[in-house]
Design a protein around this nucleic acid. Sequence first.
DNA 1: ATAAAACTTATAGTTCACTCTAAGTCAAGC
DNA 2: GCTTGACTTAGAGTGAACTATAAGTTTTAT
Lengths: 127, 127
Amino acid sequence: MTIKEVSEKYNISPETIRYYERVGAIPPVTRTAGGIRNFSEEDIGWLSLATCMRGAGLPIEILIQYLKLYQEGDSTIPARYELLKEQRDVLLEQRKRLDETLDRLNYKIARYEAAIETGTLTWERPD
Amino acid sequence: MTIKEVSEKYNISPETIRYYERVGAIPPVTRTAGGIRNFSEEDIGWLSLATCMRGAGLPIEILIQYLKLYQEGDSTIPARYELLKEQRDVLLEQRKRLDETLDRLNYKIARYEAAIETGTLTWERPD
DNA sequence: ATAAAACTTATAGTTCACTCTAAGTCAAGC
DNA sequence: GCTTGACTTAGAGTGAACTATAAGTTTTAT
């Protein structure tokens, strides 16, 4: 699979894919004899992992760390396990914040609905 | 309340608070006769709103837009209502992505647990 | 065979959201 | 009354994650 096909399939720009490879967020991508990227299923799996984690807001540095451990072999399995658990905790924290913000937004939206329906301002505080 | 007190209470640096005021993410803060910031409850309410929204990842630009509408008066109530609903949708999308990533992390963590417990690699795919 | 399109690397530029620095002003304690 | 420390503004600097550019190579279609 060419970089362009992968780019379209996963909606990441070719520049971003090359960037991920360059900084070590994904392993070196399989190449043709001429040196052109030719993504294997495994390459695509790594890219999919990277975009998933990035989409949730985890920093690239974490991906780099995880890949580095992975490339060091089976002895790093416990370290990888710890890394993943830490990042899960980070995401759970982030979800908590997200839910609090959603509650606050929903409260405000409900007040605006009341204000619009009744034509009356139902609050004094400006926020 | 001084900027330092607010800074400590909400865990935002004074620089960030001044930055929010400067760019219009919060309204101009109440001042003493000498021109020093002296936060009212209302000022703190706006700051709390800003940090909440930022903590969930909404861009500063949205806060600026919302405040601008607010300052234009009651005629912008429907526009503010629409803005808030749009941002709620953004956050719901973000939560969906977050949950997908958590599922993926949990799956990987479970596999690592199995690998560690049994001392056996239970997968061939490297991710 | 050759022109156009897509690829390559290396490096520079952009955006966002702060974060820091410099130079100066103000207020509270001794 | 003066020094210390917190405040002020204006503007420059930082880090993360892309994003774009330049200059050159390779593949594909004719």
